[in-house]
Design a protein around this nucleic acid. Structure first.
Lengths: 341, 341
DNA sequence: ATGAAAGCGCTAACAT
DNA sequence: ATGTTAGCGCTTTCAT
């Protein structure tokens, strides 16, 4: 597509500012980037020239020569996943004060979508890349490693990351919750996830299965249910589970709002919680804490995940350490037991 | 800050590709941007050279020469406001296929924050700017107009926009809901907003007050309450309203999740809804529709707001029309009446 | 503390 | 359909 709209019309350049201030362009450049290296009096004249002309620095030109942008690419499955908002805010809070900007891309939940998105974004020359995903195509892995900027993966603690990892263990979190349900005497614990599920879903499911095995409970395939998104999906899944020959006595709802939908359905049907069925949620929310009965949930430190990822990114940029010596940070999770279990 | 990390190491340039393909750089450039203007055989050789070298286009250099970036600046109050996610997704869905990238900035809810953010982002030379805000400092207005790219404001239909407007009327929406409450016989209608409130809050309040006047109800200052954020804030506000000498008989909850918090408190206190008090929400949500009783809410077309803003932005970029001939699009709202009123 | 020269990797403008 | 020339606005490098 060709845009006839100029980014900015007859423009004031650094050269103009320099001329007015009676210095060379490089001095203006230094006054902007490292003020302390320019004499106060000179700086003053430059400031005035900038005010007078309304000069706006052009980082496109700056980046071309310096071979360094201030763009951080953040790749997420979808913007609509509200649970990512906290993480993104965490990233933003850390990088913005350092002059870095956040460019948002979505992967549509698939490695292929991620590959397309990355290919579309690399021409921007981001100075770092953060991905809420740990499963990539071979080409993506290769292209990212070749590109050579700091890489951070979030989403799960993985064995062979591309670069840094900041996360918690999905497997352990799901296992801990399932173990809690088993410890409170539940025998028919269902695992309800938002279909069609992604890599993290399967990891969580493996934690669930492991906890069942640990507790000596028999694994029942009919208790693993892919729910349609939304409250209605949760309700449908729950009705199915309660209608089984051997009904579920606990539901572990893995995904945005699934547990809330289930609670509403229990109320509607008159199924007492936790009397008839225990309800547990993967992700904590204000709702989970405030409804009556409160919903037992896993608290994932989403904001902190973003903050730490941002910090790590800044450190990496400053140290210039090679991708190969990467760090893996485990931020853990908390099991908030409430009245629903 | 100085980063020693190169955005990309010893790089393949267009000149390298051109040499290998046996053409000039401009031909490679054309093959990438307008393939149909290059002979198929030539194109083929260029493709191969790109594959072979792993060449990645550098849009920093491209933008410098063409004076045109593909960055769209999207300014929002805060990333944590989940109701904006739909709008941002709408924008993204429209602009991504056209090769534009979304850069996210936050204004911290104040015109001064917005001014700082814009100043920090203008050096990126975004090709368009979208703001979920209609109140700007004088300097911001001046800087944006001078900068000269297409501008879109969302958040409210305003009389004197900087550029285009895509929104609905906050005043009319609040008025319609309040009128509905009055029409169903409520006399003591409370207006509960998330404190400290922003420009949109006051506009909505003016709609509320207008509807009261229209219905011949006396305005009661004690019925306008700034709630603390979160469910607890809504509960506190509600208890206050019910404890008044003349208690409220309807609550219009204006802000994220306030209504849900109120419903929970009603349940806890045993206040029947809508018998003892009617509950209405400014913003529709899945929760509002599914809880029992369902919550009467205003549906704001958030995704569509983003989509249309994106479309308008693309049109503006293509037409190159001056900022002055801007459009104002009213997407309206819907009043979803449910059992809570 | 400041400057001169060179050039980053592309694309506009004008050929042919 | 393809090429030549020039230069976008900065920063690097090397001087002074």
């Amino acid at each position: 597509m060709s845009f006839s709209h100029p980014a900015s019309s007859p423009n004031v350049t650094m050269a103009d500012v320099a001329r007015i201030a009676g210095v060379s362009t490089i001095t203006v450049s230094r006054a902007l980037r490292a003020p302390q290296t320019v004499a106060p009096a000179t700086r003053e004249r430059i400031e005035q020239a900038i005010q007078q002309t309304g000069y706006v620095f052009d980082s496109v030109a700056g980046s071309l020569k310096s071979r360094r942008t201030n763009l951080v690419l953040v790749l997420i499955p979808s913007i609509m996943h509200s649970y990512l908002a906290h993480m993104i805010q965490g990233i933003s809070d850390v990088i913005s004060p350092r002059g870095l900007h956040l460019v948002l891309g979505t992967t549509e939940e698939t490695p292929e979508g991620e590959e397309r998105t990355i290919r579309a974004f690399l021409p921007l020359r981001p100075c770092a890349i953060l991905m809420h995903n740990t499963v990539h195509t071979a080409r993506t892995r290769e292209e990212l490693l070749r590109y050579g900027v700091p890489l951070i993966e979030t989403g799960d603690l993985i064995a062979e990351p591309l670069g840094h990892v900041v996360s918690y263990s999905n497997h352990e979190a799901a296992r801990a919750m399932t173990a809690h349900l088993a410890a409170t005497g539940r025998k028919r614990i269902a695992f309800i996830y938002r279909g069609p599920g992604n890599e993290r879903t399967w990891i969580r499911r493996s934690g669930y299965r492991q906890a069942l095995a640990d507790a000596g409970l028999t694994f029942a395939p009919e208790l693993e249910v892919a729910a349609e998104p939304g409250f209605a999906g949760a309700a449908t899944a729950l009705r199915y589970l309660m209608g089984l020959a051997q009904p579920a006595d606990a539901g572990f709802f893995v995904g945005d709002d699934l547990a809330a939908g289930a609670m509403i359905e229990c109320q509607r049907q008159g199924w007492s919680v936790p009397g008839r069925i225990a309800v547990a949620a993967y992700d904590d929310s204000e709702l989970a804490a405030h409804v009556d009965p409160g919903i037992t949930s896993l608290r994932i430190p989403r904001y902190e995940l973003g903050r730490q990822a941002g910090e790590l990114l800044l450190e990496s940029l400053e140290s210039g350490a090679p991708l190969s010596d990467s760090r893996s940070i485990d931020l853990g999770f908390t099991l908030n037991v409430r009245q629903s279990t």
